[in-house]
Every structure is written in structure tokens, then in C-alpha cells.
Design a protein around this nucleic acid. Structure first.
Lengths: 210, 210, 210, 210
DNA sequence: AATGAATGAGCGTTCATTCAT
DNA sequence: TATGAATGAACGCTCATTCAT
């Protein structure tokens, strides 16, 4: 092992973690590469031995964590049969993961969305896979007769994602760093009723019943 | 109202509209003040007679439209008694308003969120009022016995907002410019079941009870 | 006339002159745009209102002066019939022009040749026109029976150009700033009569031996 | 000579040859030391075991080849008595040497002249010796009565050098890699007999009238 | 009120060089 | 001797903002 103390992969991680911290604190545009280098305790040029550009650094944050998250979520699901339990598990992981690293959450909820370009990249990549997972859960719930058959799994998946995402963003923006996971129960509560429904639930569309 | 006054306000609107178009097309950071000036057919310096800064221009877009939106939504609600009808009306307006002006939608869903600073401003301003409105609808629905009493109005409001917001963002990002309003029905469908519930809905948390 | 004191074209000239001075002193690569701006007493950004890039600045030096030089040389020639007089006039102008502005000469002899790209641009542009002029002079001299009929006008033109160019470069490199024009006479002398002179003009090598 | 010594010198040559190729292809400034290292198939740092700096690398190209060239030219001369034959031999070697290695020619004609500093180094070093040689040839030609006695050997030497140099540069810049040596004959022709030739050698202007 | 020429701070990236192994 | 990861100084260019007219 040469000049550096850490292996190559370890240094990559170090830089990435530093980038998350700096981006979270100053915002992507407010952050200078020099800040990231300083935070990672490497020279400016060293950053470019591990990442192609500032943008690549941001992209890497996404790839590194979102990938892993979706995989873990899928594995969680595989262990559970009931779609309600699955949803519970996935959303819990979602909230817990981000609550555990507020800086990372900030980058995910804010910095990664600063442009259509990035939003699209996310939308077509990891988020799309996440939505896919949610959609599968909904669909399997429907075919098991646990979720209402009228559900449009695509819209339902987006509703679920939108709901969690909004909660997380609100948490990131709030000054008091607390209580993300506590919102899991009420969130699920609303979602389950929406998904499960009941036979006696006179449809909304049939307004003006006797 | 003097002629000058009218001209002044009109020019302000012209600039603002130009800004929306330019921000939507190039993104806030990609857009140069010169681009906005050109789009509004005024000189660079003239922008500063109407707006303090580039940021102020973006802020003004928000204030101008979001304000009006929330007010209109409140007025809509005042005319309706059933919380379901109210929600229907508000969300319909939400979707229709943005579908009618894709550039504006782009600015709202993307450009206004590129930094914590702006997100906070939004969150504390118009979005907060919007959430407040939703919360009131939910609360009144609960007290009327139409929505489930277990609902946490705060979380429910966020879930609703998150869901619509996610749908709009997906629409903005999609290449094919179509079909936002069509998602209203399935959206409401999921939300109403979530909000209304039914007596036969054994709660998820209380699984396995007699 | 706005903020500045000078007209737009005048300021362009000012910047260009400053660039010539700075490039001559520090070399193209050694010169920073900031140096040029300072020398022209304008802000850094102002340079870019008049020139597209650092490279464009260098190119402009060429265009501005070389163009004019070739035109003047052509006009000089038009007034004279004897090709020897013409050559005399052209080369005199060449030497005098550059001797009058050593900084400009430096840029022409050195900085404009720092890369194949620039050399090609020069070679295909102004220098090519200059060579063309020389070639025409030689050709007309030949057809008038004043210059030897065996001459290859193309090679002759290059020989002439190469000779003057070398003298100028040597002068630019020499520390003592003097005496460029004085070399006109011996230069013409060699060019007109070559090395061998008349009486000994039995051909060199195998040609025309008794 | 130890095996190590031989290997060392051989690697030096390898690097130097690589440098010539890379400098010729990308230009001195466009070439990165890494490119040279890669071309020589050594590590970046290894270059610095053989050369002090990038500049030193360029300088070494000059020293290595120009030195040898001048020496060979001198040796050629020593074998010949007639100054015309000598000039013929020297210029032939000049053209042939460079035609044989276009990359080297490119470095000599272009890269070595990108700054006053380098031009001066060349002018004071090898070129100065070359000019000295040419001057001696001219001078001996004059004293032998073969060259005209009016010649200024210094100026004549520069004219000769400038002429060849210009031809070589034009050849380097031309896209079609052909025909440098073919220009020797017309070049010598002009140099020996000048433009005017014998019969018409009535002096130009007032000079040398009866 | 309107103009638009001028300003100048600010930053991502490159690459010659070093040095621990 | 050779390596190549690490260093960090250096710079062209952009663009929001100002202000003389």
C-alpha cells in the first residue's frame, strides 16, 4: 500500500462521504471541489483520481447508496408473504436508512434534484426500480385479495412513494432533527386503508346515494 | 390607475412570464439574466428595475402563482360541504392549473427546489398554507364522521400533498406532454379509501384480533 | 458614447495593442488574460466583449496587421514597373514595418508560431498571400527578361521570404534593438545576384561545362 | 561498459524518441508527460530519472540531434574543396536528415520555437554553429574568387539558412509527405545565381555603374 | 424609465513534479 | 532502479450586477 494510508476503495469511500457532508451543508452549487477535498483531507487533484467531475461525484453518491437500498429492500420483501408486511418493511427501511444519515438524506431529497437532468437520471434509474418494487407489492396484494382490486398499481406505487418522499423532505427541512421513524405508523395507517378498502366502502364516484 | 402604473405592472408580468419560460427551458442555473431579458425584450439592466436579483425573480414566480392558487383553492372549498368534494375540487385545480402551463409546472416542481433555502421558503410559505388547507379538510372530514377518526390530519395532509406532488413531477419529467388530469380519479380513489376506511377494515396494527 | 471614454473600435485597438505588448513580453503562454486586461486598463471580463478567447486575441493581432501589410505592399508594387524595384519596395516595407514596432515583430516572429495550428493558419492565410505577391514579382521579372528564365518562381518566392524572415527573427532575438533596415541592401544584393556573381557563372556541378 | 550503463543509455534514447513522436503529434504544450511516459512504456516518475523536466526533454532533443548534424556537416565539408560543392553537401544533408524523420523535423521546425527562450537557446547554440559553418563556406568561396567579393558572408549565411529553413517548414506543414529533397536543386540554383543571372547583371538602382 | 457596456469575483479542472514504497 | 498515487498551484472564462448616459 503506497503513500496513502488506506486502500484505493477506502479512499473512494472517504471522499464520497466527505462529498455527502459538504453537499448537504452547502448545497451542490455552493460547494466547491476544494471544500470536498479539504473535508476528505486530500489534495484538490486527488478527487479527480477517483471521480471524473463534480457532477460525477454527485452521481456516485446516488449510485452507491440507492442501489444498495433497493437491493436490501428487495431482499427484505423476499422473506415476507403478506404485502402489508412487505410494505411495512420497505418503508421502514426507507425511513430508518435516511434518518440514520441526515446529510445523505439531504443530498437525496434536495441536491440530487436540482435539475431536470438529474431528476430524470434518478427517475429513470433507482427510483424507477423502487417504484417497480412498490408496484409489485401492490399487484401481488391485489391478486392475493388483500388489496382492493380496483387499484391501479402504477398510481398506487406513485402515491406511496410521493407520500414517504414528502415526509422525508419535510423532516430534512425541519430544524429539529427527530422523529422520522415515528411517522411510519400513521403513514401506513393511511396507506393501508387506501389500499385495502372494504366491501362496504361505497365508492366516492357514486356520490348522492340514498 | 395612471397609464404609467399600468404599463409598469404589465411589464413586470411580461418579465415574469419570460422568466418562467427561460427557467423551465434552461433550468435556473443554466438560465442567464440576459436570456430572461432577451425573452422579455428588455435590456439587461431593466430587469433590475423590477426585481432585486435573479433569486428574487424566482421567488416572485412562486409568490405570484402559488398565492393565487391557494386562494382560489380556499374559495372553491368554501362552496362545498362534503370534505370529499372539497378534496376533489382542490386536487383537480392543482392538476389542471399545472397541466395548463407546463413551463410553470416545471419551475414549480424542479427549479424552485434546487436548494434547501428555496425549499424552506416554499415549505414555510405557500406550501405550508396549502398543507394547512388540506389539513383542515381532513379534520373537518373527521369531525363530520366521514373520514376515519384515527387519522392524524397532519400526516394525512402530507400524504395527500406528497402523492399529488409526485404525480405532477413525474408528468413534468415525462417526455410526452399528456394526461395529468386523468390521474385525478385513481388518485382520489386511493386517497378516499385511505381516509374514509370502513368498519370491516380490521386495522393492520391490530392483526389477529378476534 | 457610454461609460468608456473611447469609441468601441478605439477600445478594441487599445486592447489589441496591449495584447501585443504583453504577448511580446511574456510570450503567449506566459501571458495571462488578466495581464492583458491590466495593460489595457479594463476589467478581465471586458476583454471578452471584444474578443472570443485568448486565442482569438492572438489571431486578431495577425489579421489586423498582416492584412494591412500585404495590401500596402501590393499597392507599392502597382506603382513600380521594374521587378527589382518592386522587390526592393516590398522588402523595405517588410523590414521597416517590423522595425517600427518591436513588440509586434516579436509576436509575428515567435508567438504566432507556437503551434502547428497557428503556423498552418498563417501559412494558409496572410503568408500565403505574401508568397503569392513575391511569386508574381519573380514571374513578371522572368517574363520581362530581367530575372533568369530558369527560376522556379515558387521556390524563389520561398527563398526570398525565408531570407527576410530569418533576418527579422534574428533581429527580434538580438538584445541590441537596432539595424534591421540596414540589412536591406546586402539582402537584396544576395537575392539579386546570388552567391556566384556574373563572370564565374559557369554552372555549378555538371551543368554546361566546356 | 557495464550492462547497467548500456541499459541506462538505451532507455534514455527510448524516452527521447518517444518524446519526439509525442511532441510532433500533439505539440509541446498539448503533450503531457504522461503521454511521453506511455509512449516510452515507462512510469511517469521514471522520466525524471533521465530528464530534469519537460523542458529539459525538449532541450535534449535539440542537443542530441542538432549537435550531431552540425558535426556531420563539418566532416562532409572537410572532404570537399569547392565551396559550391560544400554548400551542396551541407544543404543536402540538411534536407535529407529531416525528410528521413518527419516527427523530428516537426519538433525542430515548430516545437523548438514556441518561445523566445527556446529560440534564443537555439540561436545561440547549434544554429549559431550552423550559421558559422555556412559563413565559413561563403567566406572561403569569396576568397577563392568563386563567390562574388561584394558578399557580406554574415548576411549571406542567414539568407541561406532562412531559405532552407523556410522550405523545410513548408514541407512540415504540408499535408502531403513528399518531395523535400527535390527542392535542393532549385534552391541551390537560386542561391548560386540569384534572381538576375549573369547577362542582365547591370546593377539594380545606382550600384556598380560604369 | 430604460439602456447595455463594463465590471471583477469566483471556480472546476489540468498536469508537471514529487516521493514513499 | 522503477513505480504511480498524490500533490496543489495556476488560469481562462462566465455572468449577476451596476451605473453613466
Amino acid at each position: 500500500m503506497a503513500r496513502g494510508e488506506l486502500g484505493k476503495e477506502a479512499k473512494r469511500k472517504t471522499i464520497l462521504a466527505a462529498a455527502v457532508r459538504v453537499f448537504a451543508e452547502k448545497g451542490y452549487f455552493g460547494a466547491r471541489m476544494r471544500d470536498v477535498a479539504a473535508a476528505a483531507q486530500v489534495a484538490d487533484g486527488t478527487l479527480y483520481l477517483y471521480f471524473d467531475s463534480k457532477e460525477d461525484l454527485l452521481t456516485a453518491v446516488l449510485e452507491e447508496h440507492a442501489q444498495a437500498f433497493v437491493e436490501r429492500a428487495r431482499r427484505d420483501c423476499a422473506r415476507l408473504a403478506d404485502p402489508r408486511h412487505r410494505l411495512h418493511a420497505v418503508l421502514e427501511r426507507h425511513l430508518v436508512s435516511l434518518e440514520a444519515n441526515r446529510a445523505l438524506a439531504t443530498v437525496f431529497q434536495i441536491e440530487l434534484r436540482h435539475s431536470r437532468k438529474f431528476l430524470r437520471r434518478i427517475a429513470k434509474g433507482q427510483v424507477s426500480q423502487y417504484l417497480q418494487l412498490l408496484q409489485e407489492i401492490v399487484a401481488s396484494g391485489v391478486s392475493q385479495g388483500i388489496f382492493r382490486r380496483e387499484l391501479d398499481p402504477k398510481v398506487a406505487a406513485r402515491v406511496i412513494f410521493g407520500a414517504v418522499d414528502e415526509l422525508v423532505t419535510a423532516w430534512v427541512l425541519s430544524q429539529k432533527p427527530s422523529g422520522l421513524k415515528e411517522q411510519l405508523a400513521p403513514l401506513l395507517e393511511v396507506l393501508f386503508y387506501g389500499l385495502c378498502g372494504s366491501e362496504s366502502n361505497e365508492a366516492h364516484g357514486k356520490r348522492g346515494e340514498p
